[in-house]
Design a binder for these strands. Structure first.
Lengths: 217, 217, 217, 217
DNA sequence: TTGTAATCGAGACGGTACGTCCGGTCTTTGT
DNA sequence: ACAAAGACCGGACGTACCGTCTCGATTACAA
């Protein structure tokens, strides 16, 4: 079976479907949108969707791919820490934006559907991870960071906290968080007697255990 | 309106429902199980589920709560880093286990349902975060780590990478990852000329960019 | 099994149930009312209804019994045809009234439930048929009608047309119909050259075949 | 809104639904059959039933329509009374048959649903009433019956007694009843001194008031 | 007068069916 | 020859009632 003749495919329908899918996903989220709605809004038969995609998640995946290819590239100014700050800030900002619902929806779908998970990894995660790794490796070669750490794990340490906030909805990822991540990552936790003992209050910080109900839904 | 008379509630049915829900979730995941199935397997009317819970996610949430309350507590041996290693290893192991599907299912559901998100935070995340924070604060007071970092962000740096692997399905969380996280977090990335430049191979590490499609689900 | 102790029965509840049932039946018909509604409106537990009656139809049956016992009796003036006219007019009027829905509802229920049918016959039909038969027999003995017809069939000829209109909803039973029934029944259809050929217009008469759709529902 | 595109309708499904409905109605009656059963037996989605009919009664109505169109026609031999006897006997026989449950079920449903009532009248009652009226009018013109009676009322007098037995379940309509109806209707009740005073026993006749339980459900 | 036993209001329970919605497939129609 | 349109089967949704089953709290009888 597999896919029909790619050549006869209607680009017009493809575009309308991707646009409608993205639109709907932003309106009510991946789980609450239906293939039927996409079809209706795109002015397309349902079969046309099922012919070319396996699920609404696959449609959304393709729709997202097109819009975000630009954000892959990593800056290079020579200062690794500054470049990381630039890039991570961009990510934190994106994660905090309302427009980002489709991405979290996709990650949610990936939890229950290995195909989505694979596609997500391949198209969204890995290219960005690779870009980050390359920048890190270059910095390493330039002696800006130590060489005895695993680059992959390092990427996870830098971006994991952003995903943590994004997906557990504790508080929105923020620029402040990015700075703190870099602070800790670069300086390390081990005590350094020569350093000042800063105790600045933190507006990001939720206060677990006090008036807990307020941070609901 | 709200809930009916709690006193007349049948504990027998409640148990059967929670058990059935957990069982089904492990069999096919939260998204693919239905309220009807839970009811049938529990030998219960659907209305009995709808009477006491708002959704299948809420049932699962309650079912999970009961089983994991024991894992909150943090060890205290006096050595903060060792205690973190102990606890994070436990988490990494749990995250890797097959039995953990219900938890990721719940996180997925939280992406599209604020009520689930709130409940997840309140019952699963916050108690553990609090426990970790307390341990960290104690270590801080004992001078084992620096005092000028935000504790919340620190928690995110430690656990974020585990969630990253759990939810993005790049590779399973592992004990090795835990060690590396602690290495980086404690030592910091900044170069230290006195240290050896270890280059040990890493079995966890996927090789992005080579035969990338092969690691798909 | 059967019924519980009749002596301890609460007359208060019995009354409230019968009243509520009749009220509800008039509001929305037997089929669309529920035991739950009766119980709620009567301020009574559902069990109290199920304890004493087998179905909502049985409740309604009993409720109706109480209200209509007065209409059984047949007048006796000496003029059979006049007495029939009096009684049948009363019936036609009752059948036409809006308050009569419970009765048709009961007949409807009887079509699918033999118990209701038996109860209906026993409590509502037979006593009235017997009364009518007695009056007819007396008239027969007095020589006011011929003796060579079956009394039962005669009753059916007199009242059947009223039930016909009541149950098939072609047009409401009317006094005019009663007069015509008696005319035909007493005179007979066979031509009598000596009689006048009346051709009075009939306001009751629907005109089948012309603009038929207009008389719908 | 209303009905979808009639042209795309599947005749296959329509047939299966009507057949299943009639079958089920004969098995357990209109009230005790469910839309779900019809769907299952017809191998059809429930939605396909709800798409084209408003209720199970509507389905049954359409199913019955197709089977009974043949019985409308009235015989014409020149002898009105004989023709009436022929036709009414056919009806009496049909009313007595077990296969007739769907019809009584429909009449029952009509008591609580004006749409069913209208449909019943339009499709089942009126065509037959019209056919009978025409035959009667012709007989009237031929001088076989008097001209000073209302034809509609006459139809009710002839058929009302059959419906009476059918719906009140006193005793089954019978050929004997038909003969007696015609006897009374044609001869009239008024005494005729020249006639014999027949007193033949009647097997149809129930004996109200004696051992009444025997005719119970 | 006080137990004792049954009925009572209340309503949770295991179920059945409702009528709606959507997922995926199959058929018809128009271009 | 495509696709659009959309009807189709299947089956889960959440709701409404069914008739049964506890629960105390009356209530009426017997002791």
């Amino acid at each position: 079976m597999s896919t029909p003749n790619e050549q006869r495919r209607s680009e017009r329908s493809r575009r309308a479907i991707l646009d409608a899918a993205l639109e709907l996903c932003r309106e009510r989220g991946l789980a609450k949108m239906t293939v039927e709605e996409i079809a209706k809004r795109a002015g397309v038969g349902k079969q046309t969707i099922y012919r070319w995609w396996g699920s609404k998640a696959a449609v959304l995946q393709e729709a997202l791919n097109e819009r975000v290819n630009s954000t892959i590239d990593f800056p290079y100014t020579g200062d690794l820490r500054a470049d990381l700050h630039t890039q991570m800030s961009r990510v934190a900002e994106a994660f905090g934006s309302e427009e980002f619902a489709p991405y979290t929806g996709l990650i949610a779908a990936a939890q229950e559907d290995p195909e989505v998970a694979a596609s997500l990894r391949e198209h969204m995660i890995e290219p960005r991870v690779r870009a980050c790794e390359e920048r890190l490796r270059r910095g390493q070669e330039e002696g800006q960071i130590r060489k005895d750490f695993d680059i992959d794990t390092l990427v996870e340490i830098l971006y994991g906290p952003l995903y943590y906030r994004l997906l557990l909805h504790t508080r929105p990822p923020s620029l402040k968080q990015v700075s703190e991540i870099l602070d800790i990552a670069f300086s390390g936790l081990s005590p350094d007697p020569g350093r000042p003992e800063a105790g600045k209050p933190d507006p990001d910080k939720p206060e677990y255990g006090r008036a807990g109900g307020a941070d609901g839904a």
